[in-house]
Amino acid sequence: MRNITITCLLIYVINLLPVAAFEIELEETFGDNDSVSTVQILSSTDSERFRPVINGFINRNPELSVRYVTASTAEIYTAIATESTTFDLVISSAMDLQMKLANDGFTKTVTLAGNENVPNWARWRSEVFGFALEPIVLLVSKQDFLDLKFPKTRRDLLALMRNNPDIFINRIGTYDPKISGAGYLFSTQDSRQSDTFWRLAEVMGRLNTKLYCCTSKMIEAVDSGELALAYNVLGSYANAELPSDSNAQVIALEDYTQILLRTAVVPLASKRPDLGTRFLDYLISVEGQDILDKQAKLPALNNFEISKLANRKPIRLDSGLLVFLDKLKRSAFLREWDAALFQN
């Protein structure tokens, strides 16, 4: 039933937007049909997750409706950087790509009414604004750890995998950096954090690790017991989607836990940048942050649990992010990755 709706919508969208050559996942419109204006949002976050915030926004601005288009982070980048789309706000969990959009001049400098709600570390210039956090965690299958201690650090994890190949062979999952922008970001940032990452990659390669496109698939696999553990999954998805009696257990490794920023930019090509700014302002407002945190389960900038995490390492929103987007750098990294993971 739901799939039919989505398909219909997809057809509708494709008809409506002949220029939209990039691949979209879903398009939805919120609010009254007879609204005065529509905020065009392109996002990598599921509309299901984002719905409470959008509704909150429409409650505040009843004269507006929201057109919410979902796409993968890579498609989003393509849509903004190479195609003549006219979205008013672009939301993405790929900080590096958002950074590149801004650096390469595709975004607008905006002035937010609630400017002070965004701390300095969560923004770049007045172009990229972080509005939610995303801890990158380890997900383990409880039933496989009945006799094992949960790893606390990557060193523990390494030892665990080396010592128990029978448990973990074919049962480890992680992002495929070649197809997932987020996976690539996590891996590259990991490689910056410590040398352990490459040893981890080698061990994972020996254990015939499976590569995934997205977090949800990994969560499903761990929950069902297909996987014994999944490395580098989005913590908020795990927390939001797993039932309390789930087989999957979320672990924030103590040597360091990377924290991703979900960011929003107002594209330069926007026809109503004021509306994009308005929505962004709502996202960072006290009410918006509260809804994100409590209802959408997207940790707010001041999320209490995250602020308590030991050795949290927020991925810094700066020009360094551009480095791994370099094609030579990327191919070098992926070569290395392949060498580590596919040793035979």
């Binding site: 801004a102 650096n103 700066d318 020009s319 360094g320 551009l322 480095v323 030579l328 070098a332």
Partner: peptide, 25 residues
């Protein structure tokens, strides 16, 4: 030829200024 862009230098370039950085090899 292997080119390695130094992450930290780029971070630093942006850090003091938040200025946009471009490069070409």
């Amino acid at each position: 030829v292997e080119i390695d862009l130094p992450y930290n230098i780029f971070t630093m370039l942006g850090a003091i200024s938040e200025d946009k950085v471009y490069y070409r090899v």
